[in-house]
Computed example of a mutant assay.
Amino acid sequence: MKRYLFIWLLLLYITSTFAQQSLSTIPSRIISPSINSDGSVTFSLYMPNAKQVSIKGDWLINGSASMQLTNGIWSYQTSTLLPDVYIYTFNVDGVDLIDPSNVYQIRDASTLYSIFMIEGTSHMYGVKDISHGTVSHRWYPSPTLNKQRRLSIYTPPGYESSKKKYPVLYLLHGMGGDEEAWLNLGRVSQILDNLIESGKASPMIVVMSNGNVVQQATPGQDSKGFYMPSFLLPHTMDGEFESSFNDILAFIESNYNVKKNKAGRAIAGLSMGGYHSLYISANNPELFDYIGLFSPAIYPNKGIASTIYEKMDEKLMQQAKQGYKLYWIGIGKDDFLYNDVAKQRNQMNALHMPYIYRETDKGHVWTNWRNYLSEFVTLIFK
């Protein structure tokens, strides 16, 4: 009996010793990203057997930067970053990975990113201790497309208990996005909450539709179930969404306390959403007093035939004749659509169409679009 007891105690000692040695080789919980007091950010990844690791981030001018290896941990520290929302991924020996130490992740089109935020005193993207609006998802009938489709809708603080009628901003996403893109990447509800609270923006409803007419809703939320998202979808810029837009308008004006006149409607969008906003407003000059084009695509692809895109000089002249209160255009200096926007501005100048133009740094990025939205909503419904 004593012999068995001795063997058992010996095994327990050996197991405990090996366990302690094993644990000693594993670093304590890695903090990544770590936001430093000077506004720089440190990223860390435990990957001791990797040969090469880099980080891709939307603040990096060249797109990516190499990480350095110390005791099995790859690390990288940025310079001081301005208050904003940032996305990034790691690349380990040619394979893109999200940060396993960061629970905050987000999908942009068909790619998953890690995300972090640097806040500032005047920053509009964070959640503050103020009154908040409501975000809901509603299904609406689209007779034009012969399907039920999903909307994301922001209603301002106090909407549910108020009897007054509110103006509406129809806010459209870019290619690869959907009805959740402006909410998740664009921080719409936070921006509106903060600007309404400060008195810089009028209380308004924001309607975010899905501009991909082949979809009912964002991937995973429609009858197709879970499937691999795709950046390029059929019928995204061929006139079908623009032709079906009045289905959205009819649903909102039948189900919400909204102003049903031109002065109570605005339409804006980024990239493909700017393209949709351009053509929807030009084909329906009686509908919107406020139009916003954020880094917009301008011209249809070759081979696209639709009456929506025909006789644009005449349509823009009619839009100018009927009048509007604000036409706002913004684009980054490094945006690949910069030259097309310059041509559109020349056309509008020739037609004597007034507009506000904002030219910013950077390219086709969410940093610009959040900033554009933050300015645009302070100018409408005044």
Rank of each mutant, 00 (worst) to 15 (best):
I248N: 02
T367V: 03
I248V: 13
A181H: 12
K262C: 08
N339F: 06
Y279M: 10
Y275Q: 11
K259N: 09
P27Y: 06
R370F: 04
D99R: 06
E310F: 05
N284L: 08
W328C: 00
Y166P: 11
G363L: 00
Q190E: 14
F43E: 11
K262W: 00
N91G: 00
S54E: 14
S32Y: 07
R370V: 07
T155G: 02
L185W: 04
V377L: 00
H276T: 05
P33W: 08
S40E: 03
I7N: 05
Q344I: 01
Q105W: 02
L337P: 03
K262T: 10
S44C: 07
L351T: 09
F376G: 03
S277G: 10
G186E: 01
A217Q: 06
H235A: 00
P27S: 07
S79E: 15
W182F: 05
W74Q: 05
S75G: 08
L45Y: 12
Y324N: 02
I98F: 02
L81Q: 14
N261V: 06
A350G: 06
T80N: 11
P285Y: 04
Q68L: 07
P229N: 12
H364G: 06
G174M: 02
I26D: 08
M353I: 15
S243P: 05
W328R: 09
D222A: 08
E119R: 05
L169T: 05
S161V: 14
Y275P: 00
E179A: 01
V258H: 12
G211N: 04
R265C: 07
Y355R: 02
D361L: 11
F241A: 04
L287P: 00
F43I: 11
I7K: 06
Y279F: 13
T367P: 01
T307C: 00
V41S: 05
Y357M: 12
Y159K: 00
Q77E: 11
Q344Y: 15
Y4M: 10
Q319V: 03
T121R: 15
G225Q: 12
K163E: 14
L112D: 13
G264R: 03
S374Q: 03
I252P: 09
Y88V: 09
F226Y: 12
M272R: 13
L337S: 07
P234D: 02
